[in-house]
């Protein structure tokens, strides 16, 4: 697989405080890469660098290069709205709009003017819901409020909403941390399905989840990328002592 996202010598600052230090990393396309590390290690900040979500925070500064398909996303020419359409995001807490299930998914398609009439819009919504493994559970109640769904369903609705605008990359920030084991399993199965079409980067605190679903794992500590390796290697024979200590719970 080729490289989808290439990060080189990335430094990131919140005001004067540096949160990420000289990070270079290649994220291959159509793979799942997990970002793990202790709280505050910078993995979520790093995830948000990848679709410029940090731009909304005042006084942040980014140094280095982040390229998607070879194009620098921090270049002044980059259309951030278009970038965020291409690089979708799913958060820890599901955040459906206070609208119907249908409208939640249709929203992005409408504002991006991606459809050619009502039947096309409906087809796109159905496709996104099917890709998010939610269609069978909601097809008879598309007009009802999204808040009537369970937590796991709401999270899959948010994934459907992200998929509806045909992204290329999906960033997930602890997407299953608030879900029960069954809902978690569904999200995990979905992630593994989605990588056939999309490049996925996922932040997780659940080591076993990273082991189950990712192809590669990157370990961050104190804003530095300590190690990135195929997940199987990472969990059986990591290169770095710090990684070993973290994944075996020698420090928290």
């Amino acid at each position: 697989m080729g490289t989808k996202i290439s990060i080189s010598h990335l430094n990131f600052f919140y005001g004067k405080s540096q949160a990420l230090f000289d990070i270079s990393l290649k994220i291959p396309e159509q793979e799942v890469m997990a970002f793990v590390g202790p709280s505050g290690c910078g993995k979520s900040t790093f995830l948000r660098v990848l679709n410029r979500m940090n731009d909304t925070i005042p006084n942040v500064r980014v140094e280095g290069k982040v390229k998607i398909d070879g194009n620098d996303i921090y270049s002044p020419k980059t259309d951030v709205v278009s970038l965020r359409r291409r690089v979708g995001m799913v958060f820890q807490k599901s955040n459906p709009f206070p609208k119907s299930i249908f409208e939640n998914v249709a929203y992005g398609i409408r504002i991006n003017r991606m459809h050619s009439g009502k039947p096309d819009l409906e087809a796109r919504v159905e496709k996104a819901l099917k890709d998010a493994a939610l269609w069978d559970e909601v097809k008879d109640r598309l007009g009802t409020s999204a808040f009537g769904l369970s937590g796991g369903q709401q999270q899959r609705l948010c994934i459907a909403r992200a998929l509806a605008v045909r992204p290329e990359v999906i960033l997930m920030d602890e997407p299953a941390s608030a879900l029960d084991p069954i809902a978690t399993q569904k999200i995990e199965e979905l992630v593994v399905q989605l990588k056939k079409k999309y490049t996925i980067a996922i932040v997780t605190h659940n080591m076993q989840q990273a082991a189950r679903i990712s192809d590669k794992t990157a370990f961050f500590m104190l804003g530095k990328l300590i190690e990135v390796n195929p997940t199987e290697k990472m969990f059986t024979n990591p290169d770095d002592k710090l990684t070993e200590d973290y994944i075996t719970g020698r420090f928290g």
Binding site: M207, A211, T236, I247, T248
Partner: peptide, 9 residues
């Protein structure tokens, strides 16, 4: 305990 790395080996 879901051991990893050296513990797993």
């Amino acid at each position: 305990q879901q051991p990893a790395a050296h513990d797993l080996r």
